[in-house]
């Protein structure tokens, strides 16, 4: 199966947009899991550091300059496709922070445990919500920071809220 058949990016797809382990070791960094050429470019303007670029064709996919990106996460809620994530592997020795867009209710609260989901929607366990940032009245997309074990940092991309025992 390929992305075009089921909407799940493959390892090969992800390898094209994944920063190096050296870069991950330097701090949080943004990953644009945007693989298809569609007419869309708000991410380019979203980055205050000019780290996201695109050719003059708005159908191109974006490129993240991992050296310019400091993982601030502003781009997450600005991507109409909800396809940008930030991973911080320097959070602690055992845990990484995954930041992702969230548009469901209820919105989790800081400190709450939520069920982490991978790119296929599979439940990966319960993890603590570290931070919740509202996109504001107009944008409306929340950015959630979830504390996950290091080895799941590039697996978990969503949560299901509620039902934690």
């Amino acid at each position: 199966m390929a992305l075009i058949n089921d909407g799940i990016p493959t390892k090969e797809d992800l390898a094209k947009v994944m920063p190096s382990e050296e870069r991950f070791a330097q701090g949080p960094v943004s990953i644009a899991e945007c693989f298809q050429k569609i007419p869309c470019n708000p991410c380019v303007k979203a980055c205050p550091r000019g780290a996201i670029s695109m050719s003059t064709d708005i159908n191109d996919t974006p490129t993240v300059d991992y050296d310019k990106c400091n993982g601030c996460g502003v781009c997450i809620a600005k991507c109409p496709g909800l396809a940008i994530f930030v991973v911080d592997k320097t959070y602690s020795e055992d845990f990484a922070l995954v930041k992702f867009p969230f548009e469901y209710v209820p919105v989790p609260e800081k400190g709450q445990f939520a069920c982490g989901l991978n790119r296929s929607g599979e439940e990966m366990g319960w993890f603590e919500v570290e931070r919740v940032v509202s996109g504001g009245k107009k944008n409306k997309t929340y950015t959630i920071s979830l504390k996950v074990p290091q080895e799941l940092a590039n697996e978990i991309r969503n949560i299901k809220v509620g039902g934690y025992k």
Binding site: N5, D6, I8, G81, G121
Partner: peptide, 24 residues
């Protein structure tokens, strides 16, 4: 169809919410 017709970011978004997209 054997392939997703809409934008793949929409498909990815629902897949990671647990909704399977089954082409063919």
């Amino acid at each position: 169809l054997p392939r997703i017709g809409g934008y793949l970011v929409h498909a990815s978004k629902i897949q990671r919410a647990g909704i399977p997209v089954r082409t063919g």
